[in-house]
C-alpha cells in the first residue's frame, strides 16, 4: 500500500537527483545555477514532508532567494571560458574513473555485506497545531545556546576576514629604524668590483653575462 506521502517523496527525490546531476553536466553555467535552484526546491519539498516547515521555508528564502541570485549575478558577470575549464579533463579521466570505481566498489562491499535497511529511528508524528518554528527557537536559545553563540563568532570572523582581505587602506609608510642604521657598516652599502677599464670587442658577450651574474 503506497500512500500519497510516499509518492510525493519519490517525486521530489527523483527531481532532486535529476537536478543535481544536471548541475554538474549542464554546459552553460547559468543553466547549472538554475538547476541548483531546482535541487534546492525539491529538497525543500522533502523537508516539508519531514515536518520541518521552518527549515524548508528558510532554504527557499535564504538559498534560492538570496544566495543563488548572488551566484547568478557572479556567474553572469564573470566571463568563464568553458574550453579552458575542460582542458585536461580527458587526460585525467582514466585516473579519476579508476579511483571512482574503486570507491564505489568499496562502498558496495561495506554496505552490501550486512543489512543496512533497518537503521534510522522512526520520526514521531506530531499534531497539526505543533509548531516546528517554536520548538527550534526554544532549542536554539536553551540547549543549543553554546553552538549558537559559536556560529555567531564564526560570522564575526567572516566579517573581519572579508574586511581585512578587501580593504585597501593607505600603504605602509617608510620608516627609519635608528638601531638598524647604527649597525650598518660602509662595506655593507658599497661594494667595489674591479673591472677592466676597456673591454675587448670579441669578449663582449661574456663580459655582459658576467655583469649580469654579479648584479
Amino acid at each position: 500500500m503506497i500512500g500519497i506521502e510516499t509518492i510525493v517523496f519519490f517525486m521530489f527525490a527523483a527531481l532532486s537527483v535529476f537536478a543535481a546531476l544536471r548541475v554538474i553536466t549542464a554546459r552553460n553555467p547559468v543553466h547549472a545555477a538554475l538547476f541548483l535552484v531546482l535541487a534546492f526546491f525539491s529538497m525543500a519539498g522533502i523537508w516539508m514532508l519531514l515536518e520541518a516547515e521552518f527549515l524548508a521555508i528558510t532554504l527557499v528564502l535564504v538559498y534560492v532567494g538570496a544566495v543563488m541570485v548572488l551566484f547568478l549575478f557572479v556567474v553572469m558577470m564573470l566571463d568563464i571560458n568553458l574550453e579552458e575549464l575542460k582542458e585536461g579533463f580527458w587526460r585525467w579521466f582514466p585516473v579519476g574513473a579508476v579511483l571512482a570505481a574503486f570507491m564505489i566498489f568499496e562502498m558496495v562491499w561495506v554496505l552490501g555485506s550486512r543489512q543496512t535497511a533497518e537503521t534510522g529511528a522512526h520520526l514521531a508524528k506530531h499534531a497539526a497545531d505543533y509548531s516546528n518554528t517554536k520548538e527550534l527557537g526554544r532549542l536554539i536559545y536553551t540547549d543549543y545556546v553554546y553552538p549558537f553563540e559559536l556560529a555567531a563568532v564564526i560570522l564575526l570572523v567572516a566579517i573581519v576576514a572579508a574586511i581585512a582581505l578587501t580593504l585597501r587602506a593607505g600603504r605602509a609608510k617608510k620608516k627609519q629604524d635608528p638601531s638598524k642604521q647604527v649597525l650598518v657598516k660602509s662595506k655593507d652599502r658599497v661594494r667595489l668590483i674591479s673591472m677592466p677599464a676597456s673591454k675587448k670587442v670579441s669578449a663582449q658577450p661574456d663580459a655582459a653575462k658576467a655583469d649580469q651574474v654579479k648584479s
Partner: peptide, 8 residues
C-alpha cells in the same frame, strides 16, 4: 572557527 581564521 579555527580553519576560517587560518584561511584568512
Amino acid at each position: 572557527l579555527l580553519s576560517l581564521s587560518l584561511y584568512a
